[in-house]
Amino acid sequence: MTDHARRLLAEFVGTAALVAVVVGSGIAAQQLTDDAALQLLANSTATVFGLGVLILVFGPVSGAHFNPVVSAADWLAGRRYGTGLTATDVLTYAIAQIAGAITGAVLANVMFDLSAWQISTHDRITTGHLVGEVVATAGLIAVIFALARSGRAAMSAAAVASYIGAAYWFTSSTSFANPAVTIGRIFSDTFAGIAPGSAPGFILAQIIGAALGLALIVMLYPRSVAEAADNAVVPHPSTTDH
Rank of each mutant, 00 (worst) to 15 (best):
Q30K: 07
G26K: 05
Q30Y: 00
L32P: 01
T15L: 05
M1A: 14
Q31S: 14
A20G: 13
I27N: 00
A20H: 10
E11M: 09
A5L: 15
V22H: 03
F12I: 04
M1S: 13
E11R: 04
A17R: 07
R6H: 13
Q31I: 04
M1W: 12
M1K: 11
L8H: 07
H4A: 15
A28W: 12
V23D: 02
L18R: 05
A17W: 03
D3W: 10
A10Y: 04
Q31F: 06
V23Y: 02
R7I: 00
A29K: 02
T15S: 08
I27F: 02
Q31L: 14
A5E: 12
Q31K: 13
G24I: 00
V21K: 01
R7N: 01
T2V: 08
V13K: 10
A5Y: 14
V23P: 01
A17Y: 07
V21H: 03
R7L: 01
L18H: 04
A16N: 12
A5N: 13
L8I: 11
V19M: 03
A5D: 12
V21F: 01
L9E: 07
T15G: 05
E11I: 06
Q30C: 00
Q30L: 00
T2W: 10
L18I: 03
A28M: 15
A20P: 10
E11G: 06
I27K: 03
V21Q: 03
L9R: 11
R6P: 08
M1V: 15
V13E: 04
E11C: 09
R6G: 06
A17D: 09
V23A: 11
R6Y: 07
V13F: 13
F12S: 06
A10L: 08
E11K: 08
A28P: 11
E11D: 10
R6E: 09
V22C: 01
A10Q: 04
V23I: 12
S25R: 11
L9D: 07
F12K: 01
G14V: 10
A28N: 12
V19F: 06
H4F: 15
A20Y: 13
G24H: 00
T15K: 05
A10D: 02
T15P: 04
E11P: 03
G14L: 09
V13I: 15
H4P: 00
A29E: 04
A10I: 03
A10H: 03
V13W: 09
H4I: 14
V23G: 02
D3P: 03
V22Q: 02
A16T: 09
L8W: 10
A20S: 13
D3Q: 14
V23L: 04
F12H: 05
V21P: 02
Q30G: 14
Q31N: 15
A10C: 10
F12E: 05
R7S: 02
R7F: 01
V19G: 00
T15H: 01
A5M: 15
V22E: 03
H4M: 14
A28R: 13
I27P: 04
A29M: 08
I27S: 01
F12R: 02
G24Y: 00
F12V: 08
G26C: 10
S25K: 10
E11V: 06
L18Y: 04
I27M: 08
L32K: 08
